[in-house]
Design a protein around this nucleic acid. Structure first.
Lengths: 206, 206
DNA sequence: TCGCGACATGAACGAACGTTCTTCCGTGTT
DNA sequence: AACACGGAAGAACGTTCGTTCATGTCGCGA
């Protein structure tokens, strides 16, 4: 089961004949060579269609990138939100669930996560705002958990307003080195980073 | 004092009339638009010279990027090495010094750090190997400190082989959001991240 | 004075780029 | 039977790209 056939697939069939194939091809191309390094001809070839036909689906290369990033950030946000809601009231448990969901998405969709980090700067205007908003919502969930954990005394970090950024940076960076065939399984990675997050929050006995 | 006039400048005059200006212009251009998004014409204009003259200094656009990344990684490695050597024998003090030096470089050379992270993939062959080697050396310093701290009992992390990657990811990511006019000063950032690193290592009472 | 090498430039080359245009096919509706 | 429309493709447009070439200037050692 590769990263494009997860239980929660990032790119679904839409009813339009080639849309999913184009998005998948674009994700691979942007992940391989970067937004400016990949050409629409590359995308068309990988999608098994013609160059001009891409424009029957997406009005421009930028819109193609925007749609990919929108899908990725929305799915990641949804996963974190669902996991936290199901985790009960304890800040420690909620943080554990949030990190596990976040890292789980990164592992399931390594390429999409990498593209979302490194190519977002090539978006402009409304497209960028939407993606940033989804990312901020995800970050907001973490910040709420931290705030409640600080209030309850579970987290003793002296920098509650800043530590979330470090947690998310650390977890997002997994996409730059993760190897599906490597030493660490998905579960091990999630557990490990949950522990890292709680250590950063100075949650006491782990 | 901006990031190009640090006490340890990244780009020094070399005796060749325009070399420093070209490197500085290239760093800005690659930082602004990415390697593939910036053109040699952009670099020439910003350096105040002609397009064809660039090729009297660097044989190709790739070599230009390679030289920039080489300068950045070498300087960062030198800073960390020097700081750790001066820090005495205590693993806690050595780690504090290493993180402070690492983060100090990121803050002093935000653009170079960002470019080094996100554009290294456009290097190939020998150029890439050199840069990766310098980066691995830096990481090796951190790993040695962790190993000795685990032996001495100062660090109680159960994952000593993995936690360094998280520390460096977290610190390198500063380059993606740091604002020189923002709330956090360079010193505050260094202290904060040194504490984060020790927390990740589960160093006990901070 | 000569020649050589470093520095500099405008023009040009061939390739690749994102996008558009025109045309066509197939299918379902009126 | 006529039409509309989503899907598809080839050719082409105008632009920009990295790089090369031919040429020229300047200063310095022989």
């Amino acid at each position: 089961m590769n990263e494009r056939s997860s239980v929660f697939p990032l790119i679904r069939e839409t009813g339009r004949k080639n849309e999913a194939a184009i998005l998948t091809a674009a994700l691979d191309a942007f992940g391989e060579n970067g937004f400016n390094g990949a050409s629409m001809r590359d995308v068309a070839t990988a999608a098994g269609t013609s160059l001009s036909n891409l424009y029957n689906y997406f009005p421009s290369k930028s819109h193609l990138l925007a749609e990919l990033l929108r899908l990725a950030n929305d799915e990641q946000l949804a996963r974190v939100r669902t996991a936290v809601e199901a985790a009960g009231a304890s800040p420690v448990a909620r943080m554990h669930a949030a990190v596990t969901a976040f890292v789980g998405f990164v592992v399931d969709h390594t390429t999409a996560s990498r593209v979302a980090i490194s190519e977002i700067r090539y978006l402009s205007g409304v497209n960028r705002k939407e993606v940033v908003a989804a990312r901020d919502s995800t970050q907001g969930i973490f910040e709420e958990i931290v705030a409640s954990g600080v209030r309850s005394g579970d987290f003793r970090t002296p920098y509650p307003e800043d530590v979330v950024r470090s947690i998310l940076s650390m977890c997002a960076a997994i996409s730059t080195w993760y190897d599906p065939g490597g030493r660490l399984s998905k579960d091990a990675l999630c557990d490990r980073h949950a522990r890292y997050a709680l250590a950063l929050l100075e949650a006491g006995r782990l």
